[in-house]
């Protein structure tokens, strides 16, 4: 293993590489969830959306590689992943806005439904190798293969880096952004302004699911770059926790995603320098972090600042 040549430096390098690679799905899902929750609804189903996105991106990329060539087919895959996400988002938006329907319950159903769809249609694509998205190789200045592979940056990650501040600007400086915040914080006030709560939430949930679908494409077409049923390992659910951690702020979603991506890489990085003991424990780091964040941010004595006021209420 070349990693051993780096010695202990392999650990921070591994974590950094993991941060750059593994944070993209977190980023897309959390931005999608952020948009959804700003409108006052929770979409737990993004875990299912993530899997469906990963599967459909991979399948499309594989099927179209001979038709449009291996350069273009993954990009069509990304688009299809987003559209598949929108379809699931539509179902969630429609169901969760029926009278007396709880969005958490619908979300759990949508996790099962989304992953079921993904597993059902994804069976034939577990073995074959689909063309991957191109990467920007920013590490060519280094002679070390680890540095080179760590700095293979996906354009999707860069896209995410742009979307986060764009979304923050959208919430602050556009009429639509203000409407969404109004709907999420005080539906009565939004109604008094003549805004249709249903429409706003519908569009937010669908757009959020589009982003989550693209997050799935990051998984299957970039890192780890394959399709299997365990590929998401709960990242969609963690992204929901991450939005709370980020106080519903898109810029902070970016930092939180990087943090979670890095935490996810602790286990593999330690493994690469030969620390096998407690590896399951380190692999659990993101989950432990999720729990810790929940515990730290929840207090019976005060309400969470920044939380959209209508979150968790039934229409």
């Amino acid at each position: 293993m070349a990693a051993e040549a780096l010695g202990w430096w392999g650990v921070p390098l591994g974590i950094m590489a993991g941060t750059l690679r593994g944070s993209a799905p977190f980023l897309f899902v959390s931005l999608g969830e952020c948009l959804t929750e700003k409108s006052g609804k929770i979409n737990l189903g993004l875990e299912g959306t993530l899997l469906t996105g990963a599967m459909s991106a991979y399948a499309v990329s594989y099927q179209l590689k001979d038709v449009v060539g291996p350069g273009l087919s993954p990009w069509i895959g990304v688009l299809v992943a987003g559209i598949a996400g929108m379809a699931l988002g539509f179902i969630h938006a429609w169901l969760s806005q029926q009278p007396k329907v709880n969005d958490i319950a619908v979300g759990i159903a949508m996790i099962i439904f989304g992953s079921g769809i993904a597993f059902f249609f994804g069976k034939p694509f577990i073995k074959p190798q689909a063309p991957q998205l191109l990467t920007f190789d920013l590490g060519n200045w280094s002679s070390l293969p680890q540095v080179q592979s760590a700095l293979k940056i996906s354009p999707l990650f860069l896209l995410g880096l742009i979307i986060a501040p764009a979304m923050a600007w959208f919430f602050k400086s556009t009429r639509w952004g203000l409407f969404i915040r109004a709907v999420g914080d005080s539906p009565d006030a939004a109604l008094a302004m003549g805004v249709s709560i249903k429409k706003v939430r519908m569009l937010c949930i669908i757009a959020g699911s589009f982003l989550a679908g693209i997050g799935g494409a990051c998984l299957s077409l970039y890192y780890p770059g394959l399709w299997s049923e365990t590929i998401s390992s709960g990242q969609g659910l963690m992204a929901v926790a991450l939005v709370i951690f980020a106080r519903w702020n898109p810029i902070q979603c970016l930092w939180a995603s990087l943090f979670f991506g890095g935490a996810q890489a602790i286990g593999p990085a330690l493994q690469s320098v030969g620390i096998d003991q407690g590896r399951y424990l380190f692999n659990a780091a993101p989950y432990v972090l999720t729990l810790l964040i929940m515990i730290i941010t929840c207090s019976p004595k005060k309400t969470l600042s920044g939380a959209p006021g209508a979150l968790g209420t039934i229409n």
Binding site: L178, F179, D185, S186, A189, A192, G309
Partner: peptide, 17 residues
Amino acid sequence: HFTSVPAMTVAENLVLS
């Protein structure tokens, strides 16, 4: 009851209305 959005500033509420 007040119809302004509590989490927004006075300016944001006025522009939004």
